[in-house]
Design a protein around this nucleic acid. Sequence first.
DNA 1: CGGCCAGGTTAACGCTCGCTAACAGCTCGT
DNA 2: ACGAGCTGTTAGCGAGCGTTAACCTGGCCG
Lengths: 199, 199
Amino acid sequence: MTTHATPRREQILREASRLFAERGFHGVGVDEIGAAVGISGPALYRHFAGKDAMLTELLVGISSRLRDGGRRRVAEAAEAGLPPEAALDSLIGGHIDFALDDRALITLHDRELDRLPEADRKQVRQLQRQYVELWVEVVRRVYPELPEAPARASVHAVFGLLNSTPHLSRPSSLPDRDEMAALLHRLARGALTAAAAGA
Amino acid sequence: MTTHATPRREQILREASRLFAERGFHGVGVDEIGAAVGISGPALYRHFAGKDAMLTELLVGISSRLRDGGRRRVAEAAEAGLPPEAALDSLIGGHIDFALDDRALITLHDRELDRLPEADRKQVRQLQRQYVELWVEVVRRVYPELPEAPARASVHAVFGLLNSTPHLSRPSSLPDRDEMAALLHRLARGALTAAAAGA
DNA sequence: CGGCCAGGTTAACGCTCGCTAACAGCTCGT
DNA sequence: ACGAGCTGTTAGCGAGCGTTAACCTGGCCG
């Protein structure tokens, strides 16, 4: 009954996230997940209570990582005495790293939330809300002329912008990772600046 | 065997799109769709060949409307002798109208494509590609200094930004429709301007 | 050495799903 | 008036799903 991370569990979660992102939670069978890690079907129940539990752990995990990483970045910027612009850039950069390096998880994050049992969904939503509020606070510190409502809507929109990377399936003829990160950063910053300028 | 639009068909498609967006294609049963329009279960097969056919018609319909509407707007701007900026603003405005007024369809559009049978998926992808290329051409006319690869990536990102509205579930404490449309327009324009400025 | 437990196997159950079959009523045009 | 056809009904089939049961095996600890 330990919640500790064994290699097997992590391997299962990795493959499950990939499959869920590719074909949707309901579109993947437990036999498929098992096959992806070299065991078959019901052996998964030695590691997880059920299919739902895998999705729950994935979504809670990613939401926690986003929120905690965001908090850390904002705190570090504050301790270093940096201006709010630096905190915002750090938030943007952290989110971009996540979107580029964990595309499957980002996809699940805003696509399969409704497939969770009610209790777990509440927990994930709370983590997401705290992450959004963190962004809203920093954004409003950078752009004090921007009221709260449009600030929150803008943050959501910027998430949509940054999370758009997984939809780019064809790897060819696209910028490489570093160029893509820089481009997304400029897009996000430009969007927020324009939002504030019009308010 | 007519493909014409009877009221019943349209009603079914409306409810199906709502349900698919809420709980995912695999998460909705045909009995549920039937119940939503007041008939029950297998009666749907008097109007559609099957569940897949409903999703196909929804996705082909929305992709066609987006592409055709976009082409019309670009053509109109050209005929009126307007500068490319006007065509871009018209594209953005049209997409925003769509995102705000047909949230369910926008959600399906970038979420359930993989659930289509291969042949239909090819058709939808072609329509989507043509719509993207339309945007890329206009964007590059407005920002000639922006190379093609980052232009395409930016267009995808702007789609993600504009399509983010459905994720805002709580209607309270958010801008109303017109403010939201104006805000999204500024965000999109600001993002593209910033992308071009950094290139 | 011996027993336990972690982690795997296959078989099978029960449920749900998409879909078909068989039938019924309503509205027409002739 | 009446058969045709469109649109609805209920019953039920066959497949696939998540899950449980029963059993096996190899390594570790006392």
